[in-house]
Amino acid sequence: MVKEAMAEIVRGTAEIIDKEKIEKLLKEYYEEGKHYYVKAGFDPTAPDLHLGHTVLLQKLATFQKYGGIIQFIIGDFTAMIGDPTGKSETRKKLDRETVLKNAKSYEEQVFKILDPDKTQVLFNSQWIDKLGASGLVELTTLVSVARMLERDDFEKRYKAGKPIAISEFIYPLLQGYDSVYLKSDIEIGGTDQKFNLLMGRQLQRSFSVGKEQAVLMMPILEGLDGVQKMSKSLGNYIGVDEEPNTMFAKVMSISDELMWRYYELLSSKSLEEIEILKEGVKEGKVHPKYAKELLAAEITARFHGDEAAKAAKEEFDRVHKQNDIPSDIAEYELKGHIWIAKALVECALEPSTSQARRDIQAGAVRVNKEKISDKDLHLEEGEYILQVGKRKFAKLKVTK
């Protein structure tokens, strides 16, 4: 069983530090029934999660299958500082009211994947508030400035002469202190979090916790474009709370190559099942579209249920096989003589007017089913069906 469990735990990972420790924890669980603790932290800097976030949640769910108790940390304290990971400048500070509102949303969304009976939802303000000024100062004595500047993003900003706030140095210390306080056995995060994850191991040594957490890093999930990481700001995301038809259609829009990456990181199918399906596609016995439909149905059902996933597939087939317009699309009303690029942004079909212009030039925009090429087009009074690509629609009423 340990071998089987390790195969699922290792699946899709980018790097594991102290793999032997994880094997030891699994062995103790199967031989002695002893549970172990897996930590993952999420700063509630936005109210909603997308599938990129669920890569970690899926891995946490895997640990739950094999004896792990999840320490799901909502960084209500650290979110107000802002994780500097991957940032080229100091992040804007969030107010506590926004953080707590977003945290509540996170709690509601994560249990669509995690087993609540095997999950401890924790807010790190519970123990960081108790540190006080003296405790925080003591924490800062454990790591040198030189060590902090070894971190890639800090080093780049320092060399470029860009400011680094002292609070940003404190962030990884506080994340590491979470592991000290909770006595975590394993911590997981994205590859961009490596410095922070290793800080937990270092501080557990410094505080003589009696253990050093293993670290498991997951790759960053590519967005729908298959190039950049999934991000709401880039418009290449699939939101956990998106309605079923949109979720199903977005999964169907990914490339055949990217599909297997999504299977590996997001599907609950076993590695053996995925390999059989992949071989079937490779040998021409299974159509790639069918394999993608299975993935789209699985992901949609996970967040909305089997019936909703079935209905979403039927709607997708109706729209795409008949070249029809979806039965339920958002409606908007705007003032007349509006620039088409601005209309597409106002109708939530495009993230920006510059992207709208690019899509028009690429032939991806239709008005009333007719492809348009004039990026300077203005819409007069009337009703229009706007479309971007194969899956994004809006009904627009233009008034005087």
Rank of each mutant, 00 (worst) to 15 (best):
F123E: 02
E138T: 15
R91L: 11
P116T: 15
G135P: 06
F169M: 11
I166C: 08
R96D: 13
N124E: 06
T140S: 10
L139R: 00
E150V: 15
D117E: 12
K112C: 01
V137F: 04
T98K: 13
K159W: 10
A103R: 00
R151S: 03
G135C: 08
K101Q: 11
G135L: 07
V99I: 15
D153Q: 13
I164N: 00
M148F: 13
V110R: 00
E155H: 11
L136V: 14
P163H: 01
N124P: 02
V145F: 10
S105N: 11
D152F: 04
R157N: 05
E108Y: 07
L131A: 03
S134C: 05
V121Q: 03
L173E: 09
T141A: 08
W127L: 02
A133P: 04
K130P: 01
D95T: 01
R91Q: 11
R157S: 03
A133G: 05
N124W: 02
F169L: 09
L131Q: 05
D129L: 10
L173V: 10
L131T: 13
S105P: 05
E168Y: 04
L122I: 15
D153Y: 06
V145P: 05
A146V: 15
L100S: 06
K159Y: 07
Y106N: 01
G132S: 09
A133N: 06
